[in-house]
Simulated scan of single mutants.
Amino acid sequence: MALLDDVIDASGGMARWNSLSRFTLHLSIGGTLFANAGHAREFKDVTAEGSTRTQSLRFTGITGGERSGSFHPDAITIEKLDGEVLQSWSNPGPAFADIGQPELADELQLVFFCGVAIWSCLTIPFLLAHPEVVTEELSPHQEGAEIWRRLRAQFPDQLITLASEQIFYFDQSGLQRRTDHELFGMKVAHASWAHDSFGGIVVPTLRRIQTVQADGTVIAKPVLMDVEIFDAVFE
């Protein structure tokens, strides 16, 4: 069986995924990308509601529980809890790509970055089966005593991602453990672990983004982004 088939089966199977339309998460997000910009507590203990079928995600409870933030490919908004729009950012993708520095200066950029990252985290590996995502299995990677299989993915322009090309690592159980790509002019690695099953979909509940040296070695500090998922519901 092909690698992509293996990892989709390990995460719950395409039939189960295709029966779903949305998810709700209880999570916290932190890291130096937030702290360095003065937003260390912005995404602590929040709710994220998203679609499994389109790029759409809404965070409730950001900025100490006082606001919400919505991510869509064509618009980012910051809102009061009653829905009143306080700030908006149209067509954020091209502008975000030009930031060119490892710092998220305001809440709109935070919502965009977190929206893309969390939506991708919840939809991978199923998103890799999208007909316009081009995948290629690479040579295996030695990780301690384990052999991790690797898959390179090239994403189409219509999908908003943190990088158009990414390399995914899967352990011997077929679960995603690492993702490499370029970010803010650096090479970074997303480590993912502590997988759990929610309604038949297996999700990594811990995720960490760190920089990578030229030889592929992950640098322990700083941790650019740290994600902890406390609970997930798929419907």
Rank of each mutant, 00 (worst) to 15 (best):
H26Q: 15
E143D: 14
I201D: 02
T77H: 02
D215C: 09
D231N: 14
V133F: 01
G199A: 11
L224I: 08
F96A: 14
L57G: 01
R41C: 06
R207M: 10
V203L: 15
G50I: 04
T161A: 11
D9M: 10
W193F: 13
V212W: 02
F43W: 06
C121P: 02
L4W: 01
D45A: 13
M225P: 00
P140L: 06
I147L: 13
T47F: 08
G31P: 00
P92R: 04
E136R: 14
P222D: 10
F59R: 00
A95I: 08
C121Q: 11
S90I: 08
L175A: 07
N91P: 00
T123Q: 13
G65A: 12
V85D: 08
V233C: 09
T135I: 10
I99M: 10
R149P: 02
E165W: 04
E49D: 13
E107N: 13
A163H: 10
I76C: 08
V218F: 04
L57T: 05
S120E: 11
S11R: 01
D157W: 09
T60V: 11
P125D: 12
E107M: 14
A191E: 09
C114Y: 01
S164K: 15
S51G: 11
L206N: 14
T52Q: 11
W119Q: 12
L128Y: 09
G65T: 12
M225D: 07
A163R: 03
W17H: 02
A105C: 03
H195P: 00
A214L: 13
A220V: 09
S51T: 07
S19W: 08
G61D: 06
I62L: 03
L127P: 00
I118A: 07
L86Q: 10
Q55P: 00
D180G: 06
A153I: 06
G216F: 09
W148L: 06
G30T: 09
A95C: 04
R207L: 05
T179E: 15
